Simulated assay, not measured.
Amino acid sequence: MDALTLLLTRQSCPRLTKPAPNADQMKVILDAAARVPDHGGLTPWEFIIAEGDGLSKLADIFEAAASQQGADDDFIEKAANMPKRAPMIITVVAKTRSDIKKVPELEQQLAAGCAAMAMQQAAFAQGLGAIWRTGSFAFDETVNKELGLEIDDQIVGFLYIGTPAIDMPLKPQKDGSQFARYL
């Protein structure tokens, strides 16, 4: 698949099944993330990969967070099942450095977001499916603590990756010019 086709046909794939990416595919996915724009070469990100038992651990973390939030039993059960929607989840974390004044923290968070997008594109280019999810757990203190994050770290998303469970019809192309204006 050429780069322009990839960019113009990429779409989220919410229904994923096994297999997860193999070792060679994961290397491409992680290497693509490491190539994103990164002002100052700070590499302000961390990728926490959950598959197999790791998905069970993530389910326990989500369940504990929902319970800590005072959610009802239905949501607590839903939270515990969220990691079962794909054979792999990569938690993408912005690890910002406030001591580097020439690179604002927002730029560092955006770089981590670019890494998430690059990983999704790399998965898609290799015939895999992926969907980038956030939700309340991306901003939850319990989740951060259980994942071992620092106080200034920010989860930018949970990238669910696997094999598409169904053929997704191609979404209609959007005309990007409708969102642009010239000075």
Rank of each mutant, 00 (worst) to 15 (best):
L7Q: 10
T9N: 08
Q11N: 15
S12Y: 04
P14Y: 03
R15Y: 13
P19F: 13
P21T: 01
P21I: 03
N22L: 08
A23F: 12
A23R: 14
K27L: 13
V28A: 09
I29N: 04
I29D: 10
I29W: 02
D31R: 04
A32G: 06
A32R: 08
A32E: 09
A32S: 08
A33S: 12
A33Q: 15
V36N: 03
P37Y: 06
D38W: 04
G40Y: 13
G41R: 01
G41Y: 07
G41A: 12
L42I: 09
T43F: 07
T43N: 14
T43I: 04
P44M: 12
P44Q: 07
I49S: 01
A50T: 11
D53M: 09
L55Y: 01
S56L: 15
S56W: 14
K57G: 10
A59W: 05
D60A: 04
D60P: 12
E63G: 04
A64Q: 11
A65F: 13
A66E: 10
S67D: 11
Q69D: 14
A71F: 04
D72I: 02
D73G: 05
D74F: 14
F75Q: 11
E77I: 14
K78Y: 13
K78V: 13
A79E: 08
M82G: 09
K84L: 14
K84G: 11
K84D: 12
K84A: 13
R85C: 02
M88Q: 00
T91V: 11
K95M: 12
T96D: 10
R97V: 01
D99W: 07
K101E: 15
E105C: 00
L106V: 14
Q108P: 06
Q109P: 06
L110Q: 06
L110W: 01
A111Y: 00
G113M: 09
C114Y: 07
M117I: 09
M117R: 04
A118T: 10
M119S: 02
Q120T: 02
A122F: 02
F124Q: 07
F124D: 01
F124H: 03
G127N: 11
G127S: 14
L128E: 05
G129M: 13
G129F: 05
I131Q: 02
T134A: 12
G135C: 15
F137Q: 00
F137H: 07
F139W: 09
F139Y: 13
F139P: 09
D140M: 09
N144L: 07
E146G: 00
G148W: 13
G148H: 03
L149P: 04
E150S: 10
I151L: 05
D153Q: 05
Q154V: 05
I155F: 07
I155P: 03
V156C: 11
V156S: 07
G157I: 02
G157S: 03
F158S: 09
L159A: 11
L159D: 06
Y160M: 13
Y160P: 12
G162N: 01
G162K: 02
T163W: 06
P164K: 09
P164A: 01
P164M: 08
A165K: 15
A165C: 12
A165Q: 04
I166M: 00
I166K: 11
D167E: 10
M168L: 09
L170C: 03
K171P: 06
P172W: 05
K174I: 08
D175F: 01
D175I: 00
G176V: 03
Q178T: 10
F179A: 00
A180C: 01
A180I: 01
L183Y: 02
